[in-house]
Design a protein around this nucleic acid. Structure first.
Lengths: 293, 293
DNA sequence: TTTTCTAAATCGAAAATACCGATTGATGTG
DNA sequence: CACATCAATCGGTATTTTCGATTTAGAAAA
């Protein structure tokens, strides 16, 4: 039994005339005859009475027609649903994001969610390590993160969003806040609170000091960035983050770090060879547009 | 899109392993690969993610699977329903019958209807002419009638049930009731009430007298047999019917008619080349069994 | 009746396609 | 790094679908 045969059957049932049905189906009459016969053989019951040249439905045919119709319809509905999905009338996207990029995500998120209210969105905050892991397990459609060697895997696709300089973040009333610029060496003088292991920034900062053979004064490592910023706000500690990781609303000062390769690259990371939903592509678009403002 | 492909897809979805799915489907892995690919092409969307050797469902795949499943199920249900029909768990039969054979039908009808309460039965009383017409229009599954040239059509099938002698039917207290046997000629002396045109018996009786060049005294022609019998019961009139057309319950006497070819043949008449439902075949069986008691 | 027309079934051939085995390429694993 | 595994691909084969032509048979017309 194949959908093709069910379609043939329904058309023949509709017209009760094989010749005309065959025409409308754009097949030959002999093909229709044969396919109907094959279906009848498989069902082990005639669907039509052939009294001479008169064709009428058998009781079996009438009963079976409903099922045939529904079978065809279900398949067709599936196809239509996919077309809709393609035009994202429905669907769900899951976005991973590091705290450092939450100010990038938020406006795009608001724009997208209001524009496509029917699409469910799940946002997962986490460390870069966690996000990479979730990407690998297909639990995310994409992740927003800064570039870093943790995330370098050949089956990932990368889209650059923008570059942001690393800055020292400090309370506005702290001594550091007056500086126009600051060197790595100077920072070693101050007590720091840094993102815990797992965050790309954590690794970046550790590597940075190591490369320059400097020992930073790391007082606290913490895996919650809002809390980290609260600590910084007290003036007792300072931290190092990309400039865009801090918003004006946070009420904190950012001082650029002097040195080479002090730029972080924010990017969209996604799995290669995984189908990119239209909704996801649209979200990329909004992200890029927002950044180019 | 074909049901075969949908089945392949669901198996692949179930196992998320093409090689094993192909094995369980008794096809080669390459065939499965190709058929899935073809389905994806038609749907214009990947159903699976192929990340290296890992196979996972896409969102589209997950959504489509429900429809695929239902489509297959509907077709399968149709098949199962037909199997049930074959074993007549359901269905409806329509039986045509002449009044003259109502006493043959009734016990079979009671037996069948109690044995297969789930089968709807429609009984249509009518003249042989009407029944033949309805058979031709497929409005009856079969008809019970006496044999007669009216009903001789090449696209009919005939099953003999039994033979019944023609008898004169009369009130038990009438003068005729005392006779052991009666001749055609004698009947012409008595006023008759006969079935109206259209009944096989009417034609049979008319032909009979004509063949013997006799003129019967036909006082009344009537197209309702119970009423006809009521008239006979008054003793004012007599009629001619097959012996089995009259029951003991009717309180009437039957006197065999002397002569050649005075036997009527009761039969089942049905359309050739029209599918005979199991229920109908079972009804035939019960009719035959009942008669052979 | 006989003839003519029409529609479904049938038949043989050809076109399409489902299928297979072998191979390839890619990816995890020991 | 070798090895095993799995999906994709390729070329060829087998099967199935399809078609055109013909046959068969009923219905309508002559």
């Amino acid at each position: 039994m194949e959908l093709r045969q069910l379609k043939y059957f329904l058309k023949a049932k509709e017209l009760l005339n094989f010749t005309e049905a065959a025409e409308q189906l754009n097949i030959s009459q002999s093909t229709l005859s044969q396919q109907i016969k094959q279906l009848e053989d498989e069902l082990d019951i005639p669907l039509f009475n052939r009294i001479g040249k008169r064709v009428t439905l058998t009781e079996a045919g009438a009963l079976f027609a409903d099922f045939a119709f529904q079978s065809i319809n279900k398949a067709q509905d599936g196809l239509l649903m996919l077309r809709d999905l393609h035009n994202f009338q429905t669907g769900k996207i899951t976005i991973g994001v590091t705290y450092g990029l939450r100010y990038v995500l938020t406006p795009a998120l608001i724009l997208f969610a209001t524009q496509y209210p029917q699409i469910k969105i799940k946002v997962v905050f986490g460390t870069s390590e966690e996000l990479i892991d979730k990407l690998n397990h297909l639990e995310l459609d994409f992740a927003l993160s800064f570039f870093g060697d943790i995330a370098v895997e050949k089956h990932f696709d990368y889209q650059n969003l923008f570059c942001s300089p690393m800055t020292v973040v400090t309370a506005p009333d702290s001594a550091l806040a007056q500086k126009e610029i600051i060197t790595l060496e100077q920072i070693t003088q101050y007590p720091l609170v840094l993102p815990a292991k797992g965050y790309m920034t954590s690794k970046f900062v550790h590597d940075l000091f190591e490369r320059h053979a400097l020992s930073p004064n790391i007082a606290i490592e913490i895996n919650d960035i809002p809390t980290l910023l609260e600590l910084v706000k007290t003036g007792n500690w300072h931290t190092i983050l990309a400039k865009t990781s801090v918003s004006q609303k946070d009420g904190l000062a950012t001082i650029p770090l002097l040195g080479e390769n002090m730029d972080r690259t924010a990017m969209i990371i996604s799995m290669k060879e995984v189908y990119q939903k239209k909704a996801v592509k649209e979200f990329y678009q909004i992200l890029h547009e927002e950044i180019n403002l």
